[in-house]
Design a protein around this nucleic acid. Structure first.
Length: 662
RNA sequence: AGCGGGGUAGGGGAGCCUGGUUACCCCGCCGGGCUCAUAACCCGGAGGUCGAUGGUUCAAAUCCAUCCCCCGCUACCA
């Protein structure tokens, strides 16, 4: 039996899971379920990456130990994932003893082979806290956009990854004092030594990056020499560098986190007799598949293979990178609260709905824009009305007209045969689609098969046949229930909840055991369970509840002084026009008592300029002027926004322009 | 700037690698049918100069060139 190792990118143990991570989890899970249904011996692992500097910083500010923080998120992630039906064989943590040992083994091994070099480097240092300030431990001004609170590794404002020299006026993230430079010893992995082999691996016939990243890496990185990869940090939180004189130094979090794929395998199988982690990481006959987000291909396809080659472990077969998830056209971002927490989402909606939308919404490599309206439409139309409804109407017919016993078929017509052929086609599509990591067409084939079922039922009209030709009615219903059963089995990788529910109704018990049941005919006279609609519709109410939660998470407590700094005023719109060459911008002239101001507002897609003239509105009067498409805006119009609808705030009673709002 | 991805009916996608009958699918819209089913289902219809221009060819959404527009990435960033 083929051994397959499937991994999903580790989660970072300093924040709650957002639904954007689920594109990776869901694709990995679908792949795992399908390969298992085909009989493969699959090991599915994931875990928490606990050595990030964000977690350590957070611990400092909350006054607790870092391990306390990461344990909290590890437990939470594990629980949320289980609830969504993503069951890893093992969900590890990078703070485990086995992992620490494995990381140190990698380092020792690489050093032995001469792939690691040490060198002095000048790093940011805080004299007051007596510590070095790597990555997020230092803040400063972003060289590119001028944002004053950028971190050492990333500017939140412009989204750029920053290097040490990109951060101007650096200050300590803990005490705020300015930093100084101090020399320190660091270790580097000599990536260049592995470049040719990595290049061959990536450009080989058996595509390692079948969906995304191949051209990008070959052109952008592997065509020129690779810089050394700095793998150590002067920090106390992390896996210690196991050398004399390296006290106070740990491995860089990416060096450590990737190795989790090996240590988690060790931990996963430690109780299995006769099994060894080497069966996965040394045996060339095994298969290794990594599922990750698009933003991590570099680490997985450059750092990681270098580390594996250097330690003489085998390289993965496939790295599957999925695109990002945006929310209503805007990039999700923690700092602004523009995110959907997985826990909230899954409390409100069936996990199958998320799985469906994440796969169906866009090709895997494209960024997917999560739009609630579209989510609702797609889920209701395809899952509830087409798939769920078909199975339900077939089973209800059996239950209402045949006393819950599936009738035996009489003569089979060409039309019936046609449907049976479609089942075989759909099965082929599902397997091919998942095996080629493309996922969508298999799911579409299932929905399309349900559509065929609905068409078949409507055309055959067994409710009429019951009177005119009862034998034929029995055959039609037998065929329909067979199709419902086929849909149940085929949906298993994609829609586990659906399969679970309809299996019970159909009296199937081995739905997860594979596709062989598809080859067997449904035994006539089978007794079915009580039919019920497998899914409930997504309602407007559910959507607005969800939207409300997003905005609630967005808020931070402030005091009244903070609020009173805002100068909110009532104003009358005296003129309005579209800003040339823009889609959403409207240029408004508003009168606040004596003065008249220009305000640019992004509402042109919702409001016609002529409808606004003469209306009383509320504006922020003391907002720093800002330029949009060449027009200077001297304030901001207040409006409520939910589910893509923008509603401008207006005063209920007549008040004078310039009246204060508080 | 460089690199990667993309521009196909109102919206979202497939087709492009391996050119070839009326460019396919889903949603939406319009009209009709059915009443077994969660106002669900089924049938029919309208709607496209396949980003632009030029070229190769008997034939181009599909190959080549140039240009325009969008999105992303640019290394220690999940």
């Amino acid at each position: 039996m083929a051994k397959v190792l499937v991994t999903a990118a580790l989660t970072s143990a300093n924040e709650e899971l957002h639904i954007d991570r689920f594109r990776t989890f869901v694709t990995a899970d679908i792949f795992v379920r399908m390969r298992r249904a085909l009989g493969d011996d699959v090991l599915f692992v994931c875990g928490t990456d606990e050595h990030g500097t964000s977690a350590a910083l957070r611990a400092t500010s909350e006054g607790v130990s870092t391990l306390e923080i990461t344990t909290r998120y590890h437990d939470l992630d594990k629980q949320v994932l289980a609830r969504v039906g993503i069951h890893f064989d093992y969900f590890g943590r990078t703070t485990s003893r086995v992992h620490h040992q494995t990381v140190q083994w990698f380092f020792a091994r690489l050093q032995e082979k001469g792939s690691i070099k040490s060198a002095q480097s000048e790093e940011n240092y805080c004299r007051k806290d007596q510590r070095f300030l790597p990555d997020r431990y230092v803040n400063g001004k972003c060289r590119f956009c001028g944002y004053l609170r950028a971190s050492g590794d990333e500017c939140e404002n412009c989204g750029r990854a920053l290097d040490k020299q990109d951060l101007l006026e650096p200050v300590c993230a803990i005490c705020g004092e300015s930093t100084e430079k101090k020399p320190t010893l660091q270790w580097y992995l000599q990536l260049e030594d592995f470049r040719d082999r990595i290049k061959d691996w990536i450009s080989g016939n058996d595509p390692v990056l079948p969906v995304y990243g191949r051209e990008f890496l070959l052109k952008q990185f592997l065509s020129a020499s690779l810089e050394n990869f700095s793998i150590s940090r002067d920090l106390e939180w992390g896996v210690p560098v196991p050398l004399a004189g390296a006290e106070g130094k740990v491995f860089y979090v990416w060096f450590d986190a990737l190795i989790g794929y090996v240590s988690f395998v060790k931990e996963a199988i430690q109780d299995r007799s006769g099994a060894s982690w080497e069966d996965y990481w040394k045996d060339p006959k095994s298969r290794i598949v990594h599922f990750i987000g698009k933003g991590m291909v570099y680490q997985h396809a450059i750092f990681w293979p270098a580390m594996l080659l250097g330690t003489e472990l085998r390289l993965p077969n496939s790295i599957i990178a999925s695109g990002h998830l945006n929310l209503e056209g805007k990039r999700m971002s923690e700092s602004s609260g523009w995110i959907i927490l997985a826990e909230d989402f899954l409390e409100q909606f069936d996990p199958d709905f998320l799985r469906y939308y994440l796969i169906e919404g866009a090709p895997l490599t494209d960024d997917l824009d999560f739009r609630f309206k579209e989510f609702q439409e797609r889920v209701n139309a395809d899952l509830v009305d087409t798939l769920g409804n078909f199975v339900h109407r077939a089973l209800r017919f059996v239950s209402d007209k045949f006393g819950g016993r599936v009738p035996a078929p009489a003569k089979v017509t060409p039309e019936d045969e046609e449907l049976i052929v479609r089942v075989a086609d759909a099965k082929k599509k599902v397997i091919e689609s998942i095996d080629s990591f493309e996922f969508r067409s298999g799911l579409q084939a299932i929905i399309s098969l349900a559509r065929d079922g609905n068409r078949y039922l409507t055309r055959s009209a067994p409710w009429n046949l019951l009177r005119t030709d009862p034998k034929r009615a029995e055959t039609v219903i037998y065929v329909s229930v067979s199709l419902a059963r086929a849909l149940t089995i085929l949906s298993a990788p994609y829609l586990p909840n659906f399969t679970k529910r309809t299996s019970v109704m159909l009296g199937l018990n081995s739905y997860e055991s594979g596709y062989e049941a598809l080859e067997k005919e449904l035994p006539p006279d089978s007794v079915i369970g009580r039919p019920a609609p497998p899914y409930q519709k997504v309602t407007e109410q559910m959507i607005s509840d969800m939207m409300l939660r997003i905005s609630a998470e967005n808020s931070e407590e402030v005091d009244i002084d903070y609020f009173s700094k805002l100068d909110l005023r009532v104003a009358t719109v005296v003129a309005a026009e579209n800003v040339a060459d823009t889609k959403k911008l409207l240029k408004l002239r508003v009168r606040l008592g004596r003065e008249t101001k220009t305000i640019v507002s992004g509402i042109a897609d919702q409001y016609d300029p002529t409808d606004l003239v003469g209306k009383k509105v509320v504006v922020i009067n003391n907002l720093k002027p800002s330029r949009f498409a060449g027009v200077v805006s001297q304030g901001m119009l207040l409006a409520a926004e939910a589910g893509g609808v923008v509603s401008i705030l207006v005063p209920l009673k007549e008040v004078a322009d310039g009246s204060r709002v508080h």
